[in-house]
Design a protein around this nucleic acid. Structure first.
Lengths: 130, 130, 130, 130
DNA sequence: GTGGTCTAGACCACT
DNA sequence: GTGGTCTAGACCACG
């Protein structure tokens, strides 16, 4: 697979965007367990950022169990046994979701709107995997 | 209403935390349209942060149409006609939600889990308003 | 307290040595809960290393719950509620201890020697705290 | 004896892991004085690593007196008269143990916990030798 | 002044 | 060629 990472207009740090794109790739099935990731140098050159920035993204992914970094060998997707389970996700994402709901509710946006948005992204990501 | 803002373990900037707490207050109905907000000095002293920090939070809230700053009169909640509507929300929160869904999906977490979590926070916030 | 960190002849990475020295300070009671740590720049200048190296050590300590990094404010010891408990320690240190025992046993070194060495360092560190 | 070396999740260099596994084998009595070790090629092929890597591990073991490399005859365990004695062990492992104790003490873990863990691994390794 | 991020370039250990 | 470590210097956000 060809990783296509586009750093966009976001105000997020670059390493976060890289991290999110890769997680997204795993989520959509475009990146499968065992797949090799480009080296920090290669990916950095490809998307025009410093290798340290890519490295930081990889470290984050490693910390969260999404990838495995093997010294002198390369970096590989590790989608098989996710260390974090649903409970861990709920715990670590609670604040994010709460803030999201606060924003929505303060604008009188119905919960169904959020449900639909979530479904939309689920469909989009699951669709890629076919 | 008594604003209870606790700054803590988060790695978010303080002004963001203040902003989120106030939005949350509006969302839950604890802060209603027209309600006065403490002055930047008062709130700053209360929660032990620099007044510039509070000011920045207020500016953000004003920009997004959540509050109205009336020079030398005070600051007031403006929950009635929110400047941002649902369309704006969808546009501005898309990336956040996409990242959230990516994280969840990569952990094989079903979309219904996210639905339930969202409902949970909706209920929690709506419950406070009664 | 005056942090005295001496980078030695070890073949460990510098950031690890810094990390270990600070954990040692906490263990001995020389660093107490809430104590401020020098800024990355200050400490870096003091011991003659780059601020990024110090930063990496601090990040490790933060990850393990030993310190709290507050943006724009500083860094503080967090010895109160250790996130990792005994169970976590056993899990994360098992390999280290196993390797240690392997080395010792292959040299026909009795287990009591290890016990004594451990006691020695316990005494040394606990002695400093008085 | 069938050497079972599993390289895996560790972030240690592979040659270190091989070295540790063999020392562990000696410690447990599964490898006895005079036992032949597989050739670097054989072992390398078996566990899927470069023969240079195996070679480096053997060189380390030779340096520390654990094995004897006889040119064109093979490699043999030398568990009888270990070059390093207890004094040498204490000197070379002091830092390791100190770091271990620091970690434990900072988490308020009692020294007896460490004693028990050490005994556990002693028992485990000694048990294999029967 | 604090930590956060990013760049650039270097050397090393390992495979 | 890969990741690991370290340095140096820069700009930014925050308080």
């Amino acid at each position: 697979m060809q990783l296509s990472i586009d750093l966009g207009s976001s105000d997020q740090p670059i390493y976060q965007q890289i991290r999110d794109e890769i997680v997204s790739g795993i989520a959509s099935g475009q990146l499968r367990d065992g797949d090799p990731l480009p080296s920090v140098r290669t990916l950095g050159a490809e998307i025009g950022v410093n290798l340290h920035t890519v490295n930081k993204a990889y470290k984050l992914l490693q910390r969260d169990g999404f990838i495995e970094i093997q010294r002198s060998r390369g970096t590989f997707v590790r989608a098989g046994d996710t260390a974090k389970n649903a409970a861990g996700f709920i715990e670590s994402s609670g604040r994010r979701i709460q803030a999201l709901v606060s924003d929505a509710l303060s604008l009188k946006i119905d919960r169904t709107v959020l449900h639909h948005m979530i479904d939309h992204y689920y469909d989009e990501l699951e669709g890629k995997g076919s």
